[in-house]
């Protein structure tokens, strides 16, 4: 089971509470999470399932490199953070 936490900026626009879900890869964890909170999908991922350009995913503090396949492994007890880029004006 992995804990999924969306940064505060997401919460203004969609429903994405902290939750613990199963999964052995980032993709599996996010799929499990987004099955519970489907409205958050389009805010984190594009229509092809890739991480949006200005969103970053961390697994236990390490930035995920595979932003398209999301194949990075996720250990039990891991924490996944989704954070928006700090940009714009």
């Amino acid at each position: 089971m992995a804990a999924v936490k969306f940064a505060k900026a997401f919460h203004r626009h969609t429903i994405c509470p902290d939750a613990t879900v199963p999964g052995a890869t980032v993709r599996e964890v996010l799929d499990a999470y987004l099955a519970l909170y489907p409205s958050a999908r389009g805010y984190a991922l594009d229509e092809h399932g890739a991480v949006r350009k200005h969103v970053t995913v961390f697994v236990d503090g390490e930035q995920v490199a595979d932003r398209t396949g999301l194949a990075d492994p996720v250990s039990d007890q891991a924490t996944i953070h989704l954070v928006q880029a700090l940009s714009g004006g």
């Binding site: 969609t14 389009g42 949006r52 200005h54 969103v55 928006q84 880029a85 714009g88």
Partner: peptide
């Protein structure tokens, strides 16, 4: 055009008193 969070659509049937998010077009 959220930028960070992609493109979203919303509709209001009461002149802006309330809004409902719609699915965005997907390629």
């Amino acid at each position: 055009d959220h930028g960070h969070f992609g493109t979203k659509l919303h509709r209001s049937d009461d002149r802006g008193a309330t809004w409902t998010e719609l699915p965005a077009p997907e390629y």
